[in-house]
Amino acid sequence: MATEKHLSDDWGGDAKNASPDGEFVRDTTYIEDRIVADLPAGSEPIAQDNGAFHWPVEPGRYRLMAARACPWAHRTIITRRLLGLEDAISLGLAGPTHDWRSWVFDLDPEEKDPATGLHRLQEAYFNRFPDYPRGITVPAIVETESKKVVTNDFPSIPVDFQTQWTEHHRAGAPDLYPEHLREEIDELATWLFHEVNNGVYRAGFAGSQEAYDQAYERLWKAMDWLEGHLGEHRYLVSDQVTLADVYLYPTLIRFDAVYVGHFKASRNRISELPNLYGYLRELFQIPGFGDTTDFTEIKEHYYITHSEVNPTRIVPGGPDLSGLIEPHGRERLGGAPFAEGTTLPGPVPAGEEVKNPESFQK
């Protein structure tokens, strides 16, 4: 079994640092292992030239460890549901709050993940890397039997769900990563990460007024571009939902509930931006998006866990987000969420329903 550690420094997660001038700097080092379709099921991981390992696609072998509170994990939950991978990759959900040791399965009986018996996700990391030096992040894919982490490389997980797990997609699953659009999706995903997904954190965790001012201006420059783009295009890339939309949604859906106040991204609410708000309402109403969103857990995570930003740990009662279920009017721009012949996901599997389904109305 693989025991060597290989880490990537290209993307983001939850660990945070500050530069001397107060700018938020994300620890972007991850386990680069991948799960791929060209290895026989049941085989051991194979070391690659870069030191990472490739693991075989194998239904039932892996468990996606996530948290509804975390935007980086949310994108993997959405992708898994849209593609219908529920029977192939099980889902473990940590609670919304944690201490410095990170995520705890305290939503489950006896505060243990029912499939692995893990209490803290940290245990899966230490089972493979006893001296693991980085943040214990979600999403993470864990080998269920060995209880060892396989990868936490969150940018690659949705892509691999689409491209490597194809044989196990539900009938009529969408193609969220069309081959002819991949370069455009990847380019936009990189921009979204730096300017928007991580942009709200750069403002929220700024350690000086100057760093905050710069982060705020940079974020809203990007948000203004999105508002303009979505006034002319129904979705971010092409006229159908792609992974680019999956990547933007977790940030937009947290914006009014958390980022406006908690992260001081306060120029406008999304509900005040007609194109972004219509776009967000449409996504929220598509199965896989709204039915994987729990505002209670989202707010508890940010307002309780980030005590350096919110020392009182008081969780606000608002805002009322019930407008998300109002008509969105995006049909005027043409296109459709998915290509002809694609079907929407069915009901949420038993046991995977959000704990607080009406939380958007509070």
Rank of each mutant, 00 (worst) to 15 (best):
V260E: 10
E282K: 04
P274S: 07
G231F: 08
R267E: 11
S266E: 14
N268T: 02
L276K: 06
S271R: 15
I298L: 10
V246I: 15
Q285N: 13
E272W: 06
E282I: 07
L280C: 08
R234T: 10
P274A: 05
H262W: 03
H229N: 04
T242K: 05
E272I: 03
L248E: 12
V237A: 03
E232N: 14
G261K: 14
I253H: 13
D239Y: 10
E232W: 01
V246M: 05
L273R: 15
E300N: 11
R281S: 13
E300C: 04
R234F: 14
G231P: 12
F295G: 01
R254Q: 11
P287D: 08
V258G: 06
R254V: 05
T293L: 03
I270P: 15
L283S: 07
A257C: 07
V260H: 13
L243H: 07
I298T: 12
L276Q: 09
D256K: 06
F295P: 07
G290M: 00
G231Q: 13
L236Q: 13
A265T: 09
F284R: 08
D245M: 11
Y277S: 10
I253Q: 14
D239W: 08
T242C: 03
Y249E: 04
D291P: 02
R269H: 15
A265I: 00
L252G: 08
I298K: 12
N275V: 07
N275H: 15
E300R: 15
Y235N: 06
K264H: 14
R267V: 01
V260F: 13
S238M: 00
G278A: 07
L243F: 10
P274N: 09
R281T: 08
T293E: 07
G288V: 03
G278N: 04
A265Y: 02
G261R: 14
E297L: 00
L280V: 02
Y259P: 09
V246R: 01
L236H: 13
E232Q: 15
L243I: 08
G261A: 12
I253Y: 14
R281Y: 13
R281N: 13
Y249M: 02
Y249T: 00
Y302K: 05
G288W: 05
F284G: 05
L273A: 03
I298G: 07
T242D: 05
R254C: 12
G261N: 15
L276E: 10
A257M: 09
F284I: 03
H229P: 04
R254L: 10
T251D: 10
G278I: 01
S266M: 06
F255T: 02
V246G: 02
D291I: 00
D291Q: 06
S238N: 10
Y277K: 06
P287E: 01
T251C: 11
N268W: 13
T251Y: 08
A244W: 12
A257N: 10
I286P: 10
I253W: 14
S271I: 03
L248D: 13
L276I: 07
F263D: 08
L236C: 12
Y247H: 14
L252R: 06
I298Y: 08
N275A: 14
D256Y: 05
D256C: 05
Y247Q: 14
